[in-house]
Design a protein around this nucleic acid. Structure first.
Lengths: 225, 225
DNA sequence: GTCTATAGCCTGATAGAC
DNA sequence: GTCTATCAGGCTATAGAC
């Protein structure tokens, strides 16, 4: 269990960029992939280095060669996820059309969640358990993100373009409703009696969420081409 | 790790109702409370019987006296949670007013989530990890629940009382958006710069979710008294 | 970089006195 | 019902040959 904050301050092995090489890069990738799978499926403590090594097709000691400590490997996996998320955040401006922006944001989040369900799940599990490793990230990255978007939304409201709502709540609503399809896929798919998401269903989900949320805040969903 | 379904078929110690007693009941309660806390905080594998015993104020061997296996204790905790949720499900009828029913459902879910965050979290973690223990519950209880509500919503749509949407998606939206405040409290509170939820904030959340979702599906939120 | 062997620790579970 | 002592197994992590 990672409990003390000391662990976080330790060197994160995967970041030693000065030591490069094809073999190294390939191995880092397969280890990280295998680790993500194991951590999601079994949780941090339930995942064993042995199982990760087996899944990656290498010897257990070799995992330790790349990641000295299990906690370092875990942090590296989380880092990858945060990197992925950051790439998807785009800027919004007051001049933009609110309906277009929110529609695009919702569709983007649905796509990201469903195309990377394991990343979404691991992130969720971390936050549910109190976000011991992500408190800093949320304070330094997500809070400014929410604040920045909120300012723009606030101005749209001022201009009478949409209903008077709390912008932060709107962002939470978009986050929760979109991630739900990745995090709770076992529930959603069981209830809908499906084995997996199909492209047609993903579009239905996006249409529903965009349509409902936009109308909910007084916007008319953009017509699709 | 609980992997095989054999575990699930084992006798669940806490259900031996034939052996009653004040001491027994009291101990079962404090053990289950402590276990819920530990399991949420550390995950199934990260939670140790020792830590649960300490938190409950009894000896480790005594936990095993009441729950022969760790997995039995875990199942007992999940059982309790499902019991709690089932108590909150109420019936809806075609004659009811859609806005009233959905508004009530949303407020009820917010209240339940925020008053029992640990239960909500443990349930979420179980589903995220693939719901190994809850697949049956979802098939036998939640699917019929969704189907039953969907039929009524379908008729409301037919009567022109609300927009044409997929009722199942609406239920997912309500589930996800309400549970989010319990499961992701670490994120929500950090971003909103609060230590905990206050009654005033809970009402704001309910108002926003009910207002937005209801308007989103073409209903006018009921006026508050 | 890779692999085998093993140290050292913690954990779930049980035995048995009270 | 409670508690101490202990066992057996699994885990992370390391040493050291190749």
């Amino acid at each position: 269990m990672i409990e003390s904050s000391e662990e976080l301050l330790e060197e994160n092995d995967s970041k030693r960029k000065y030591k490069r090489g094809k073999i190294r890069d390939k191995n880092l990738e397969i280890i990280l992939d295998a680790a993500r799978d194991e951590f999601v499926l079994k949780g941090y403590n339930g995942a064993s280095i042995q199982a990760i090594a087996d899944k990656a097709g290498i010897a257990k000691a070799n995992v330790h060669y790349y990641f000295k400590r299990k906690s370092n490997l875990y942090v590296a996996v989380l880092d990858e996820i945060i990197q992925l998320w950051n790439d998807y955040f785009d800027d919004i401006h007051v001049e933009d059309d609110p309906a277009e922006v929110l529609d695009h944001f919702i569709r983007q989040k649905v796509e990201l969640a469903i195309s990377h369900p394991k990343s979404s799940k691991l992130f969720a599990m971390e936050i549910i358990q109190g976000a011991p490793l992500l408190k800093d990230y949320m304070r330094n990255k997500m809070r400014p993100f929410v604040r920045k978007k909120s300012e723009v939304i606030e101005q749209w409201i001022h201009q009478g373009k949409m209903r008077e709502i709390d912008p932060a709540q709107l962002i939470f609503l978009i986050w929760s409703s979109t991630q739900h399809y990745a995090d709770f896929d076992a529930q959603v798919l069981t209830i809908m009696n499906r084995a997996e998401y199909e492209p047609e269903m993903i579009e239905q989900i996006s249409d529903f969420l965009s349509g409902t949320i936009l109308r909910g805040v007084g916007l008319e969903p953009p017509v699709k081409v």
